[in-house]
Structures are given as structure tokens and as C-alpha cells.
Design a protein around this nucleic acid. Structure first.
Length: 1072
RNA sequence: GGGCGAUUAGCUCAGUUGGCUAGAGCACUAGCUCGACAAGCUAGGGGUCACUGGUUCGAGUCCAGUAUCGCCCA
């Protein structure tokens, strides 16, 4: 037991000290090893892998939510007797982390990554990682997370690296990884490709330029030029064609058909607009179609156009991408810098593609000299000006304003340039034919479709299936330095310049000799499974296993093991082969997380014991990026899904319904909440708010460090470096503070009032516990026989059994809010407001103490266990205190309590305790209490004045109420004089009718006949109305005949009760 | 443009398979410092369940449409 010294109960503070409890119990839990999972533990395993937080920065409230939900399950399962492994770790978050460190480097030292070089930068990032990983893990501990810390992993550590390497090798050997030229989203700031998922679209004001390309040698009657429209005139320098629709008439007919169908279905309001559109298309058909048909004929004939400013000619082609209903009906084609144009190129290979951009976003040697080196923005201005000068465009008439949906990089927030580059891909579709070889995407789709992986709530399965269904290949290369480097080598010295360099002539000759030797070696290694070889091939399908000389020069050699020194040395000797510069997409390593953390590709005991994991708890925005990929790699590497269930939890939004983020300034640091309200309050608040459908809206506020008052956060003040408190006038600094003067001020925490609920609840529990501890003096454990239990005991135990069942069920179904609300209600309303209040009267009588103590100790014990997963610190604190006065607890067979509530068994429902009749009876008692209190308040009778009352009711109810006499006096200051059918209310009596009983309170001096009359009459009116509605319902034959019998009966009972109440009120009125 | 979700008290949210005289916390009003708790206790006020139709004996709940908002995908 942790606390050996006797505690003085009166010394317990009346406010729960969350700081002390957190500092005391977390280290103790760790030291006792409660969170450790052992492979030789015979109990059934329960495994969760943490969604590894990025080492980019500190944890935010979304992480607190995610991890609280995981911890609640882990603690629950631990108490339910499982061998629980919660696998912790962090993610290296390639692009995000490198971007943060590079930005910091630029700000602090004015240096770029090239100043440091690859190794220097990577070292710098490892330093950053060490710092933030520490911080993240410490935050998780403060949250109370019961992870098995000894197993902490990192997506870039050696163990994960082995899994990444092996997976890459297998995929490579399986022809599922290939290198191809694709249009990518190029981030010119970070100089890397980013995936579609790392791109966001933002509307910005822009222009639409109309430009004329002259026709070369037009025949008689043909136009002199072709007009096109573009939002990006600078890309003209990379145009390789202009397209016109191959069948403009049919296309226009199709558009008309669609519009007509829409018109039919549209509401009146929109009809006018659609009619206008129809008219416009008709007009276009009349005026423009002949010309489009002519252009199409010219395209078929192979007409060339002059590409302005370049001296190049480009063909006019026919392609359906040109929309006859839009603009001039013609469109310029820039395959290397536009996704749609790229597609056009795929259909019309002969037009070619011209890449006009350097990786840094400036124009390259493929454009006329005067534009080289300009940024895209500068080039736009120059091109537009030159076009005007050349007469290809008239600024007066050929320019319109237009809003453009511009793609931005999520990481650098700079505009994305579509860019043609060599990239690594994982093939998501099928390779070859046949049912035996479903593609990666299909395998993951099947797993969800056939229920091997259940997504909860189920509606999220649709997005998962749709996304995978596209089977788009996964671009896995990133032009970064921070990450798993792609384990592929190829011949370095392919550039003639290098080979011919005089100094290196000898070396070049050496290489020439070595390559045939290497080729032979590589063949041997490939046969031995140490390397896998492929040739550069955009399609990824045709591979030459022969390694002829000419192929070998283009060979890609994937080396299986990072430890295969022989292979690596041989390849790299004399710089003949060089490793690919790219690193892998972070999600490649995250995708392996459920098995890489358990030691795969080794066949470890951990893997055997804990894979597949039991559940995954994560946020909806990474269902595709992460969940889907874990499923497919799990299936690919182990043939088994990584988890049978995925629970998708809500997101936390701020008071304006916006997602929280540090960059908006509306983020809340869980540590601020923990400091102000306590980890238990944070956790309980989170559980209470985690409902299935709703995202969590959380108004955010600053806390003034001077006076502790809160200042509502607004869109205005959330971006200020300093804020002034409107209560005390003191100033404090925020996350934006950079200036010395601001930083000198104390920092204002950012929290939300929504955690008050949890804090207040914890405090309530703490004080109820104090009450119990004080009244357990002299407690002796002993079995309690059923006939020793009083009505209130049986009521409480019945409620407790019901709550136990409901909480257990709710948590099994991820209904956290239901579980939290059930416990809140039971603990506060049932246990504190009634049972504890009532028991005070019992504790006043020595002879009645013993049984009351045993029921109280047992109930508190059970409640602590039920609450422990949500409120670990408080429950442990009280558990330990309780042990000092009541070491053995339980009604039937008292047993010594577990040394920690962490490992105490989860409560079982005691069926013999469930007694609906007792609950119903007790509610009569509660109703009488309520009526008496209500009459007291309404008649302004002072709280301390004792009053006398009687209850008109049937005999069974009277028998029930009589034994509660003491309690009425004790908790309502009211003497029960009489109960039963013969009760007559005296003069100067106020009456209230509840639950079929008439409660009459004698109120002497305070009696106000008029007021009482009014009150009764208003109540009468209300009841009469209800009577009427019920009578109407029951008079309706359809209702009586068609509604289920029990529903009809319930209405009849209600009517009877209402009539009875009315009668009682009439009696009371008559007696007035 | 497509998909998913939301709209219930001043605020933040519950409301299971339709049976409701629609609940909770905060805020509000009135009273209470009685040995667990003022982060509390007691009582109270406050809602045309976004709107329009439909199905049904019966709709906050199911269906269709409208409006507004949010998220995801193109």
C-alpha cells in the first residue's frame, strides 16, 4: 500500500487537489508495472497501437481526445482481466517536421538546408525530434495514458526501418513499386512533390486572358487565328497543342439535354437562370458551331499554329477535353503543367510534353532566353506584356476578372505548381489477371466489405471504399532528407560530362571494366533474394529479367537489407552506383505501424501474441491516408487485417465551429487544461462530450494570469501577441508574442469553460468520498444478509447494478458519452443527493451504523472502479484512502481490496440486486420530498422551520412511506403526520398532487389562501388540458385498435392517474 | 459538381426500434454559509424540436423537398 501513515480525515481539503494526486499516482503506477504487457502472460491479449503523434510540435486537444478514449478502453480492459498492450510512439512526419526545422533554421540563423547539407540538416532534425518526443510523451503521461512505455517506438527508428525496408523490397520484387513520370503537385518552396492529400484549394481573385494563336497557311475561308482562354498565360511557353472538340455538335446536344432535364426538376426560383443558360447554348450553337466544325476539319487535316513568343509551331488537335460550351471552344494544352492537359497528352502521345520549370519554380532552358530564370509570377507579367505588344492579345477587350480555385501546399502554404517529374509509385490496382491476385486497394476494400474490419460509425466506410475504389497509384517518393531513404541504387555516372572529365578518365575506365562484373554479381544476388532488379519503365509493367548491358545501365537495384555490407560496398565502390536521393512518404512507415512496432519482419513473440491488434481509435481525416494503408500492408505483409474494429471519434472545434489549430490561434494546450482543471476533469469532460454524430464545439477563452478571470476568445484577439484583461486591466502574452516587451509579460493560458463540468463532478466525488471516509470510522467487514438491507439500500444497489450493466455495455460499443452521463447521474443524483443525505440519519443512530457502513463502502468501492477508466487519478486517491479505513469490502463475501484500483476487477452486474419494484417505490418517496420542498419554497417558509405534512395515498404506499419518517425530517425538515386513504387536509394547508398521492402541508402563519387557490387552479387547468388530450386519443378508435396494447394501456393508466389527481385537487379546492 | 453530417432552451449538447406533458450542464431568477461539497444545496422560469409537405392511430424521431452551416472528395 502506498500510504502507510494514518490519515487524519478532517485534514482532507474540501477541494480535490488534482495536482497532488497526479504527481503521486502516475509514477507509482509506472513503478508497479501495471502498464506493462508481457508476452508470457496467459491472459487474453488486448492491444491498441497509438496513432503516433507527429514530432512536429506539442500535443493539442484533439490528441487529448484521441488518447483519452484509448486510455479509457485500456484501463477498462485491464480491469476486465486482459493482458493489455497499449503501444506508444511518435511519427517522424517527414515533410511537416523538415519544414518546421527549415523554417526555424531560416529564422534563427538565416540558413537554408543547403548550407547545412543532408547530414547536417538531418542531425538538426534529430535534435528537434528528441526534444519534442520528450514533450509529447510527457504530455501523454500527464494525461494519465497507461501506455507500455518500455516499448515506445518511432517511425524512423531501427525496428521500423527494418519493416519499411522489407516491405519496400517485397513490393518492389512483386512489381508493385515502380518509377514513372507523372504530373505531381510541386511545392516550389519546399522543392518536393506533395500528395493530393497535402494540397488544399483556396479561391483567389484572378483573370481570364483571351489569346489568339495565328494559323499557319490557312486555306481560303479559314480563320487567321484560333482563340483560346487561360488563367495562366505564362504556361503558354510549354504548350504543345491546341485542342478542339472532336464532335462539337453532339457535345452541345448533350449539354442541352442535361440542362433541359435540370430545368424540369428545378424549383421555380432557379428556372429562370437555367432557361437563360439554355438560350445561351442555343445561341452558341447558332453562331459558333460552324466555326468549331471548321476547326475540327482543320485539326483532322493537321493544321499547325504559331505559338506566340516562342518561334515554335504546335498542332491543332481534336480532343474531348475542349468544351464547345465554354469560352472560344478551344483550349491550349500544356501537358507538363496541368493535370487535364496531361491527360490529353496521354491520349495524343505525339504532341509531347515540355517541362518549362526548374524545381525551384523558375523557368528553365526550354523557354526563350528572355524568360529564363523568371519565377512563374514574373513570367506571367512578361508574357502578357509581350503578347500585347505582338498583337496576340488586347488588354482592353481580352481580359476578364475571375475567381480561381488555386491549389496550395498544406505544408508551406505556397501555391502548388503541377510539374512533370519522375516519381516512385505503389501500384494500387491489380497486377496481372485472376482472382488470386487482387490488387492492394482491392484487398483492403474486401476486408471492410466482408466485415473483417468494422468501421464505427459505419457511415465512414463509404468514404474508405470510394477512395480505395479509385485505385489510384500511391506516389511514395518525397524530395526530402528527413525520412526513410529509398533503398534503390542505380548507375550514377550516366552523364557523359562526368565520364569525359579528364581528371576522372582513369576512374571512368575503371568503371567500364567493373560494370560487367557487377552485372554478374547482381544476377547472383538477385537469385539469392538479396537484391531485386528492375529497369526504369514508366508503365511499370515490362521488366527485363535478362539484364542485358543496355538494360543494366538503366537498372534499378533494390537492396533488401541495410546490413548487407557486401552488396552495398560492391555497388558503391568507386561511385559506380548511387542510392536514390528521395525518401519515402511518411505514411509508408505509418502504414506498417501495427506490425512494425511488434517486431515484424522478425517472427517475434510479440507479433504472435499481440497481432492483430484489438481496435484502432482515430480521427476521420486519416481514414484513407492511414487506416486504409494499414489494412492493405497488414494484409500484404502478414495476410491478416491489423485490427477488427476502427472507431472514428469526433473532432474538436472552437466556439465558432472552426477546427482548432495553432496557426489560427484557437488551439488549446491540454496542459493548460490539466493545470487549471486537472487531468481527470479533462478526461471526464472529453468522455462526456464524445457522442457518435456530433463534432465537439468548444468555446475557447484566455485565463488572465493576474486575476484568473476568463476572457472570451474572439477571432480578433486570438491572433494578438498580447491581450489585456477586461476585469483587472492586466496584460499578458499569447502564443504569438515575439517581442521582448510582450514576452516579459506573464503568459495567459488558453482553456475552455466546458471542462468545468468535469472539475465540478470530480470535486463532488471527492467530497462524497470525504463523507464516506469520515463515517466509516469503526467499519468492520462482514457479510450483509438480504433482510438487513433497508429500502434505500435495496434501491441504491438496484440502481448500482443497472448502472454497472449500462456502463459496461456503453463502453463496449464506444458510447463514451452515454457511459459518462450514466455515471454522472448516478453518482450525483442517486448516490450524493439521496443516498448520502439519507444515510446521515442512519449514521446518527449507532445501532444502525454497521450495515450502513458496509453498503456505503461497497457502493463507493464499486463506483470508484466504474469511474476509474475515465477518472484515474481521483479514483486511485480515494481508493487508497478507503483502504485505510475499509480494507475489505463487498456485501456477500467481503474481500481485501486490490492494491490499486488500476488492477481491481471490473464490477459485475449483480442480478439479485436488480429490483424495478423497489426503484418504483423509492421514486414515490422522492416525489413526496419534492412536493414538500416545492410547497415550502412557494409559500416562502424558511428552510429551517419544521413543518408538518400528510399524504393521501393507498395503503401500500402508506406502508412504504411510514418507515421513511425519519428521512423526511432529516432531509426536508418535515414531519410526516399521517399517510393513507383517510387523510383529511386541515385548514391552512397547501396541497400538491404527485404520482397518485396528495401531499398536504400545514403551513399555519405562512398560509395565503388566495395564493394557494390560484396555484391549485393553475395546476388544475394544466391537468385538465392533459386529460383532454388523453381522452381524445383514447376516444380515437384508430388509436385503440391499431396501437400496441401496452401503449394503449399506458395511456389509460395515465388518464386514470390524471383524473385521480384532478379529483384530489378539486377536494383541496373545496376544502379551502 | 459529388458524398457525408448537422440544425432541439440564451450557450454547449442528450433524446435507442416512432408512444414525449421534449431532458442535462452552463447561464438566469429566488432562497439557503445546517459537520461531505458555494466548484455546493433547494426551488423556479425558459423550447412552434430550422422550414414545407408526406407516411402513420401517433413524428423531435421515418420519407421527400427547401434553407443555412460544417467536413471530405473532385
Amino acid at each position: 500500500m502506498a500510504s502507510a501513515e494514518p490519515i487524519s480525515l478532517s485534514d482532507l481539503p474540501s477541494q480535490y487537489d488534482h495536482v497532488a494526486a497526479q504527481e503521486k499516482w502516475y509514477p507509482w503506477w509506472e513503478q508497479r508495472g501495471y502498464f506493462r504487457a508481457e508476452v508470457d502472460d496467459p491472459r487474453p491479449p488486448f492491444t491498441i497501437v497509438i496513432p503516433p503523434p507527429n514530432v512536429t510540435g506539442a500535443l493539442h486537444l484533439g490528441h487529448a481526445l484521441n488518447n483519452t478514449l484509448q486510455d479509457i478502453l485500456c484501463r477498462l480492459k485491464r480491469m476486465q482481466g486482459y493482458n493489455v498492450l497499449w503501444m506508444p510512439g511518435t511519427d517522424h512526419a517527414g515533410i511537416a517536421t523538415q519544414a518546421v526545422v527549415e523554417r526555424r533554421l531560416l529564422e534563427e540563423a538565416g540558413q537554408s538546408r543547403h548550407d547545412l547539407g543532408r547530414d547536417g540538416l538531418v542531425d538538426r532534425i534529430w535534435d528537434w525530434k528528441a526534444q519534442y518526443e520528450q514533450r509529447i510523451l510527457s504530455q501523454l503521461r500527464q494525461l494519465g495514458a497507461s501506455c507500455d512505455w518500455q516499448r515506445t517506438r518511432f517511425t524512423l527508428d531501427d525496428q521500423c526501418a527494418r519493416a519499411v525496408r522489407e516491405t519496400f523490397f517485397q513490393l518492389f520484387a512483386d512489381h508493385k513499386i515502380y518509377r514513372g513520370q507523372r504530373l505531381v503537385n510541386w511545392d516550389t518552396f519546399l522543392q518536393t512533390a506533395v500528395s493530393d492529400d497535402e494540397v488544399f484549394h483556396d479561391p483567389v481573385p484572378g483573370h481570364f486572358w483571351h489569346i489568339r494563336y495565328p494559323v499557319i497557311d490557312p486555306q481560303a475561308g479559314e480563320p487567321q487565328s484560333v482563340a483560346i482562354a487561360t488563367t495562366r498565360p505564362e504556361t503558354l511557353l510549354g504548350d504543345t497543342a491546341v485542342a478542339v472538340h472532336p464532335d462539337p455538335a453532339a457535345e452541345l446536344d448533350k449539354v442541352v439535354g442535361e440542362l433541359e432535364a435540370k430545368l424540369k426538376a428545378a424549383p421555380e426560383k432557379e428556372q429562370e437562370e437555367i432557361s437563360a443558360q439554355l438560350a445561351a447554348v442555343a445561341e452558341r450553337r447558332r453562331s459558333l458551331l460552324p466555326q468549331l466544325l471548321q476547326l475540327r476539319a482543320m485539326a483532322v487535316r493537321g493544321v499547325q499554329l504559331e505559338l506566340p513568343l516562342t518561334g515554335r509551331t504546335i498542332p491543332l488537335i481534336a480532343d474531348p477535353w475542349a468544351k464547345p460550351e465554354l469560352g472560344s471552344g478551344c483550349v491550349k494544352i500544356t501537358p507538363a503543367h496541368d493535370e487535364n492537359d496531361y491527360q490529353v497528352w496521354q491520349r495524343n502521345a505525339s504532341i509531347g510534353a515540355i517541362n518549362i520549370m526548374h524545381p525551384d519554380g523558375t523557368l528553365n532552358e526550354n523557354v526563350p532566353e528572355k524568360y529564363r530564370g523568371l519565377t512563374m509570377k514574373q513570367a506571367r507579367a512578361a508574357v502578357v506584356e509581350d503578347l500585347a505588344v505582338g498583337g496576340f492579345y488586347d488588354p482592353e477587350t481580352d481580359l476578364e476578372d475571375r475567381e480561381i480555385d488555386l491549389a496550395h501546399s498544406d505544408r508551406s502554404k505556397t501555391p502548388i505548381e503541377p510539374y512533370l517529374a519522375d516519381q516512385w509509385f505503389v501500384r494500387m490496382g491489380e497486377v496481372g489477371e485472376g482472382p488470386d491476385a487482387p490488387g492492394l486497394a482491392q484487398s483492403a476494400m474486401d476486408a471492410v466489405a466482408d466485415g473483417r474490419v468494422k468501421i464505427i460509425p459505419h457511415r465512414y466506410a463509404k468514404g474508405y471504399q470510394d477512395w480505395l475504389g479509385e485505385k489510384r497509384d500511391w506516389p511514395i517518393g518525397r524530395q526530402l532528407w528527413w525520412g526513410h531513404r529509398i533503398p534503390v541504387w542505380r548507375q550514377a555516372a550516366r552523364s557523359p560530362a562526368m565520364m569525359q572529365d579528364g581528371k576522372d578518365a582513369e576512374l571512368a575506365a575503371l568503371r567500364q571494366r567493373r560494370i560487367p562484373q557487377l552485372r554478374k554479381l547482381v544476377q547472383e544476388w538477385a537469385a539469392a533474394g538479396r537484391v531485386s532488379v528492375a529497369t526504369c519503365d514508366a508503365s511499370g509493367s515490362g521488366r527485363s529479367p535478362l539484364l542485358a548491358d543496355e538494360d543494366f545501365s538503366a537498372a534499378l537495384i533494390c537492396v533488401r537489407s541495410a546490413d548487407d555490407q557486401e552488396v552495398l560496398a560492391a555497388l558503391q565502390r568507386d561511385g559506380v552506383f548511387k542510392q536514390d536521393e528521395d525518401v519515402l512518404d511518411t505514411w509508408f512507415s505509418s502504414a506498417l505501424w501495427p506490425h512494425s512496432t511488434l517486431g515484424w519482419p522478425e517472427e517475434t513473440a510479440e507479433l504472435k501474441k499481440f497481432y492483430p491488434t484489438s481496435t484502432l481509435i482515430t480521427s476521420r481525416d486519416i481514414i484513407t491516408l492511414w487506416v486504409a494503408r494499414m489494412v492493405l500492408t497488414g494484409l500484404y505483409n502478414l495476410g491478416e487485417v491489423p485490427f477488427p474494429e476502427v472507431y472514428i471519434h469526433p473532432k474538436i472545434l472552437d466556439g465558432y465551429g472552426e477546427t482548432m489549430s495553432k496557426s489560427k490561434g484557437n488551439g488549446v494546450d491540454p496542459l493548460d487544461v490539466i493545470e487549471k482543471f486537472g487531468a481527470d476533469a479533462l478526461r471526464f469532460g472529453i468522455a462526456y462530450l464524445t457522442t457518435e454524430t456530433q463534432d465537439v464545439r468548444m468555446p475557447v477563452e484566455f485565463v488572465c494570469p493576474h486575476c484568473q478571470e476568463t476572457i472570451k476568445q474572439t477571432k480578433k484577439n486570438r491572433v494578438l501577441p498580447r491581450v489585456t484583461c477586461d476585469q483587472c486591466g492586466g496584460a499578458f502574452h499569447t502564443q504569438w508574442a515575439r517581442e521582448e516587451a510582450d514576452l516579459a509579460l506573464p503568459r495567459g493560458a488558453v482553456t475552455s469553460e466546458r471542462f468545468e463540468l468535469g472539475r465540478n463532478f470530480c470535486n463532488k466525488l471527492w467530497n462524497a468520498s470525504r463523507f464516506a471516509l469520515m463515517n466509516l470510522a469503526g467499519y468492520q467487514a462482514a457479510p450483509v444478509a438480504a433482510d438487513q438491507l433497508l429500502l434505500e439500500d435495496r434501491w441504491l444497489l438496484s440502481r448500482l447494478a443497472a448502472v454497472t450493466g449500462e456502463v459496461t455495455q456503453a463502453l463496449a460499443e464506444y458510447r463514451y458519452a452515454d457511459a459518462a452521463r450514466e455515471l454522472y447521474r448516478f453518482a450525483w443524483d442517486d448516490f450524493c443527493s439521496f443516498y448520502v443525505e439519507i444515510s446521515k440519519a442512519r449514521f446518527a443512530v449507532p445501532a444502525r451504523r454497521a450495515v450502513a457502513q458496509r453498503v456505503l463502502a461497497h457502493t463507493l468501492d464499486t463506483l470508484l472502479r466504474l469511474l476509474h477508466p475515465m477518472i484515474p487519478f481521483l479514483t486511485e486517491e480515494v481508493w487508497q484512502l478507503l483502504a485505510t479505513v475499509a480494507g475489505a469490502r463487498g456485501l456477500g463475501h467481503p474481500e481485501p481490496a486490490a492494491e490499486s484500483v488500476c488492477i481491481a476487477p471490473w464490477p459485475q452486474v449483480e442480478p439479485s440486486h436488480i429490483d424495478p419494484q423497489i426503484e418504483q417505490q423509492f421514486s414515490k418517496f422522492q416525489a413526496v420530498i419534492g412536493a414538500v420542498r416545492n410547497i415550502r419554497t412557494e409559500n416562502k417558509i424558511p428552510p429551517k422551520k419544521e413543518i408538518y405534512f400528510s399524504v393521501g395515498c393507498d395503503k401500500p404506499t402508506a406502508d412504504l412511506l411510514q418507515p421513511m419518517k425519519n428521512y423526511f425530517l432529516f432531509i426536508a425538515g418535515a414531519h410526516l403526520q399521517d399517510a393513507g386513504g383517510t387523510v383529511v387536509s386541515s385548514l391552512r394547508t397547501a396541497s400538491k398532487v404527485v404520482a397518485g398521492m396528495a401531499v398536504h402541508v400545514s403551513i399555519d402563519d405562512f398560509f395565503d389562501g388566495e395564493a394557494e387557490k390560484k396555484r391549485l387552479e393553475s395546476e388544475q387547468a394544466k391537468l385538465a388540458k392533459y386529460d383532454q388530450s388523453l381522452t381524445g386519443k383514447l376516444g380515437n378508435e384508430n388509436f385503440v385498435n391499431r396501437a400496441p396494447a401496452e401503449v394503449v394501456q399506458a395511456q389509460r393508466d395515465k388518464l386514470a392517474e390524471t383524473r385521480e389527481q384532478l379529483a384530489k385537487i378539486e377536494t383541496a379546492l373545496a376544502e379551502l
